[in-house]
Amino acid sequence: MEHRLTTPLTKEAILKLKAGDILYLTGRVFTARDEAHKHILNALSHHRKLPFDPTGAVIYHCGPLLKKTENSWQVVSAGPTTSERMTQMTPALMDNTGIRAIIGKGGMKGVAPLFRGRCVYLAYTGGCAVLAAEGISRVINVYWQNLGMAEAVWEFEVRDFGPLIVGIDSYGVDLYEKVLEKASESLKAIVTASDST
């Protein structure tokens, strides 16, 4: 099924998304990778307010490449980075902010049950950095720029950003896990066949 949603995302909106559905997103997304996650969690553990509002927000695992023009920033390429690196920090992020969606690539192993009733994981095609940049209409703001271009939090305005595939839905169904379960059976068959020859 195909959906079009606008941020900030409500709980009702994400409950309609099922693993394997296609989604196009309009509104705002915040980039965050390794260092930004550490900064967000550090701020929250010291009860400091974040410089942006995470309620209903979409977090994008992305270290973009931008070009500085006279008065603004131009997004050159902004594809997803491997989400697995952020897996350990994600439960605390979901517990302490009101984020409703995470965009990334490759999935996040073993955390699907924690998405139940509150959040979805959306897969953006890895490596499709210029296609992603086409879906970003404007740079709204940048936070923690001292972390460097790739690690800072960029607030992007997006329009029909996608196709995003619902990789983990808010019922805890993990599309990647299903694929790997099948792959695991095929692997066993290959190993058994080569052992018996």
Binding site: S77, C128, V130, L131
Partner: peptide, 28 residues
């Protein structure tokens, strides 16, 4: 169909990068 949508996105991305002379992927 999901894989097909991913491959279509990849082919579209390749075309845009070539036309705009931009890096295909942000991991250069």
């Amino acid at each position: 169909t999901i894989a097909k949508s991913q491959l279509a996105a990849i082919l579209k991305n390749i075309k845009i990068a070539r036309e705009k002379k931009y890096p295909l992927c942000q991991d250069t």
